[in-house]
Design a protein around this nucleic acid. Sequence first.
DNA 1: TAAAAGAATGAACAATTGTTCGTTTCAAGT
DNA 2: ACTTGAAACGAACAATTGTTCATTCTTTTA
Lengths: 311, 311
Amino acid sequence: MKKSSAYDLMVIVAWMYYEDGLTQEEIAKQLKISRVSISRILQAAQKENIVKIQITQPRPLLLELSLKLKEKFGLEKSIIVPNSDNTQESVGKAAAEYLEEAINTYNHIGVGWSSTLSCLTHYLPRYASPVNCKVNELAGNMLHEQNPYSISPYLVQSFGVSLESLPVPAIVDNNEVRETFLKEPSIVKALDSAKKVEIAFVGLGEATATNTMVRTGHLTESEIEEIRKKNGVGEILLHFFDQNGNHINSSLESRLISIDWESLINIPQLVLVAVGSKKVEAIVGALRGNLIHCLITDSETAKEVLQASEE
Amino acid sequence: MKKSSAYDLMVIVAWMYYEDGLTQEEIAKQLKISRVSISRILQAAQKENIVKIQITQPRPLLLELSLKLKEKFGLEKSIIVPNSDNTQESVGKAAAEYLEEAINTYNHIGVGWSSTLSCLTHYLPRYASPVNCKVNELAGNMLHEQNPYSISPYLVQSFGVSLESLPVPAIVDNNEVRETFLKEPSIVKALDSAKKVEIAFVGLGEATATNTMVRTGHLTESEIEEIRKKNGVGEILLHFFDQNGNHINSSLESRLISIDWESLINIPQLVLVAVGSKKVEAIVGALRGNLIHCLITDSETAKEVLQASEE
DNA sequence: TAAAAGAATGAACAATTGTTCGTTTCAAGT
DNA sequence: ACTTGAAACGAACAATTGTTCATTCTTTTA
């Protein structure tokens, strides 16, 4: 028998195993070699590239990220879109599609406002007849201007939903002002109603100077600094939380006009739309604390979130 | 989740299993799917050609045939050469190589004669100094002529072996003539010595009119007919046997001058060189009866032998 | 709407495959 | 020839994978 017969033997065994479908034991018997050796020969055949296992389809990254996020954080749903030049817009489109589905499924929806979230307004269809659905704003608005990040008007426009708005500032000067607003019957009613939404779409802000509220002058850098000292990493509807999703009680809380923390995290379906490296830390916190039930983001952010949550 | 996600799931699972090297259980845990389902998904992925297992080398037919023959019939060795235009010559060459090895390994070799066997004479090397090895002819020769199928003279020529020949006819007219020969002291001595060979190279004849002995007039068709009636399928050194290798006792036996059947099948290493469809039936008989220890043939004959022995 | 046919699921079991570890075998070096 | 070290081997065990069967969940049909 020639010297090359060890190689040829690997080839034969590979054929018998993968092509003829024999078990290692059957091969062993036929060739009078121990089964253990057959096992080793087959392993060697792979190392020698006699046997090549190829997967004809590319790795479906998006679905994979989605599954892993769902698994790791017990999400009910997660929608990951491919990262691209205009990722925000893609995410907005995905959010719009899911929002439309929600509007046709549920009767009571809550919405927050945020830069990312507002992208979804570009992709809303125009319904001919109004949908039987009520929308509640979950937080007050910006101080001095028409809120450019609000989505609720577009929902009225597109789907003809009935809107219960919260036409007050999100952040006021002090607790007295807040108390005054909170006695206003329409505000009381709106906030009461907001607690009963079946599903809500919200954005998320990071606890750094890049936060939209800082950039728009609603929060000062020193206020953010205070929150960071208390381990705050991000906020949803201006309620800050730490890396494990625990609520952070700062002086800011007494100046907020929005759905309260407890009610927020008790919403049956809290859908978070958020994109970007800056927000990863905050997203991880929200996920760890099981604050949300659905995450809509892009593949890059999703990857970073999974990466960051390993550590 | 889209409808195609079943497909994508197969792809993901395939990647995790074959590329990442995770176990099915690990995948199941990560994806929150039962392990059983992962197993089924992987099987489906093969059916769907998502996973392709390819063997980069062609099937090594020769080695495979050799292994199977060895296994099936308990051969110690089997040498299969590729079938070609001049298969006889290729087999002859292989036989020559093995014979050379044998001459260098053993001190006492037996040889028969046959058309196929004689091909090996074309491929013998020429040794400068004689080998310490004795060669015995195992059967008598042809009647009236120089035996063209004899190999022993070539062995003397090539290796300088010492030859003990059997210079008598293989087939004589009747038992009386045979008895006379068998009393001749040199014949007695040669046959005695022949029984002690360590290894022997022989050919094989089929039990039909195409048998060399019939074609050369040493046997008549009716004699073959008689043997076939007794279920004879072939012969080695003119001893006929049936499909299971059982010796056939015909009137021919009492006219033969060759090593006797018992001694023949007691040779420790009986090497058979035989080629051709016509001989398949006979080869199978010899193999089934465990008459031989080594078979030298070509791939086509080997295939047919394996095929025929299945039935 | 209810019933029936069919597909998907998972627990429990069966079969197959992988690994470890002590033994044997072989070849190189003294 | 003898020792020594590396490689090959296989029995016994461990892990992984495949299959069956009873159940659950879907879908279809009446």
